[in-house]
Design a protein around this nucleic acid. Structure first.
Lengths: 343, 343
DNA sequence: AGCGATTGTAAAAACGTTTGCACAAACAAA
DNA sequence: TTTGTTTGTGCAAACGTTTTTACAATCGCT
């Protein structure tokens, strides 16, 4: 059997309550008693039983998360891994752990969340993705249970979330191309109903307008977050009477499609077409040529989410519900005229 | 306040113990009572408090895992994400969740494990990586605490683990190249002290020998799991008086280095040099040309680990301590003379 | 010296379950 | 009928903590 607080108490010649108070650094414990009890705890290898503790304190020191169902594998995997790293690292630093569970279906996800919340299994929940009108979010709001969204929830502005400033990011990407001397710049977007697509498109437009550049309607195409989308967009652009000389692409994976198409047709990047895209997945620097990309700080998104949620749980009301994680343009060969590579 | 077993009992006009028994499908509960109690549970939205439950039953229905410290980012991230998917999916299917925690250092990791184990926080532990003479493993063995390793632990054969048959995998990769008509085949290995490097090298040698092919010592080079290693290996090979016509490479990332080098020097893949590598990360099919690679079943490694550990926890002694997850050679353009691509 | 305030500790009640034991009712076998 | 078994349920103890209440001892004042 494991050593309990009572065992320690007995050996130290004090009551269990005293041991408990030593554990929680209660102010009204004498220096001497604390020292002795701690010594005995170490000696006996005591570790407090978290179940028992949280049963009475009603705190689990655990954050919950639902395993996202696999979507766009490549980005998804990268995002997921980096995010978890951020979340877990920061959580652990604050004495929290991360509990992951899987829902086998959309309904199953809701049930999983219900179980975590009603079963008092976690103190808060981190959501990695949110649909519009998400039943999980409705549930959490109804229960007044602490949660945070990584990303943005369009239906309600009054929900704790961490996100990027996608408008600004797209602005920066476009501005970078403009400063490289480009004037005819196209935009490859994602699904038009996603806020991320909308925001990035907006930033692109803003940059073009502020620089007084022409924007032909056919320079903007929509697609999916798929390689094939990029491939199609590329052939569309390259067949235009007036081609863009550079593209802002909404996602790295899409850019790989563009790149492959260009290579097949014998075009060169960045000379014939310069490219800048988003998310800066690890693959971006491995492609040939390496991709210029906006690093959205995936690790930090997780890190911040963890931190904000924990603070919120601990009663620290945030001054703002939406926290922005800074992005960073990583310039690589795909948008530079002068090439260089390691050897 | 949350609805407890007592609330349900009161409303149903039975004792708490009866409700508890309904919950656990106790045989000596009448059909009728069970029905009524269940109805009321649904009506009141009852969910059992897991902390209370596990306090008395001494079961947490939780598996623990330590966040691996970032190593070789690309493969690591992919591996990590897919693995977690496998682990969590299977765990959830059995009513278990996955608890992740981070250790800030090597010592911190051991402390984290200690906390989970001694604090009765989890029922078993999944280890993603193991050093030789790993203090965490020593600790778990000393405590006789259920755990499983994904991968292989060289120091002790009597530890539950899931792994690939790397010897056979390398054999298959090599055999594939041979069946494509290659006779001069090189091998790019990883760090020589890792079992995975050793096993794959062994499989390569075996295939070469069984086919009666010459193996020049300079056709085998060692390196790291890094792109740069591949780059260096490539320049070494291409400067040999007698070049190999194909390579087996120990990891996809290394292969990217080979590939980039070849492209720079104007060599074509697979015509000038055919390539087969290991791990089949998502990037493998996106490179140009797409890489032939051994899929090691990362998801399944996690899935099996989860399953075996849970069975073990539940008292189901496995007939073998080491379970092999099958691999699969995915043939793509990098090892085929005839090219084809989507359009 | 006397008093209130402070300090250190213990006893006991909770927290929400599970489960061994007891016992009544119903049933089966003699 | 009597006896023995099965079936269904309740009581109460336990699990390992935290926390409220209480109380003794010490302290700092006047």
């Amino acid at each position: 059997m494991a050593v309990t607080i009572k065992d320690v108490a007995k050996k130290a010649g004090v009551s269990p309550s005293t041991v408990s108070r030593v554990l929680s650094n209660h102010p009204r414990i004498s220096r001497e008693t604390a020292r002795k009890v701690k010594e005995i705890m170490d000696e006996m290898g005591y570790h407090s039983n978290i179940m028992a503790r949280s049963l009475v304190s009603n705190k689990t020191y655990t954050l919950g998360m639902i395993l996202p169902r696999p979507a766009e594998e490549l980005f998804q995997n990268h995002f997921f891994a980096e995010n978890i790293r951020g979340i877990t690292t920061q959580a652990s630093r604050n004495g929290y752990d991360l509990l992951m569970t899987a829902g086998h279906s959309e309904q199953g996800e809701l049930e999983a969340v219900t179980r975590l919340v009603k079963g008092r299994r976690v103190d808060g929940i981190i959501l990695l993705q949110s649909r519009r009108n998400d039943p999980i979010i409705h549930f959490l709001q109804k229960e007044a249970f602490p949660f945070i969204i990584i990303g943005h929830y369009a239906d309600d502005e009054d929900i704790l979330c961490v996100d990027n400033d996608n408008v600004q990011a797209a602005f920066d990407a476009t501005q970078h191309l403009i400063s490289q001397g480009h004037e005819r710049i196209g935009f490859v977007s994602g699904p038009p109903n996603l806020t991320v697509s909308q925001d990035r498109l907006e930033g692109y437009k803003k940059a073009m307008e502020e620089n007084g550049l022409r924007m032909l309607p056919e320079w903007i195409v929509e697609g999916e977050f798929l390689q094939e989308s990029g491939y199609r967009a590329m052939s569309f652009f390259m067949n235009l009477p007036e081609r863009p000389t550079a593209l802002v692409v909404v996602d790295d994976l899409v850019t790989f499609g563009v790149l492959r198409g260009l290579t097949e047709l014998g075009f060169r990047v960045p000379d014939d077409l310069s490219l800048v895209s988003f998310n800066n997945i690890s693959l971006a620097e491995l492609s040939s040529p390496p991709l210029s990309s906006i690093d959205i700080g995936i690790y930090q998104l997780g890190y911040m989410a963890s931190q904000l949620l924990i603070r919120y749980i601990q009663g620290d009301k945030p001054q703002q519900m939406r926290v922005i994680v800074p992005h960073r343009l990583i310039v690589r060969e795909s948008s530079l005229k002068t090439l260089s590579r390691w050897s």
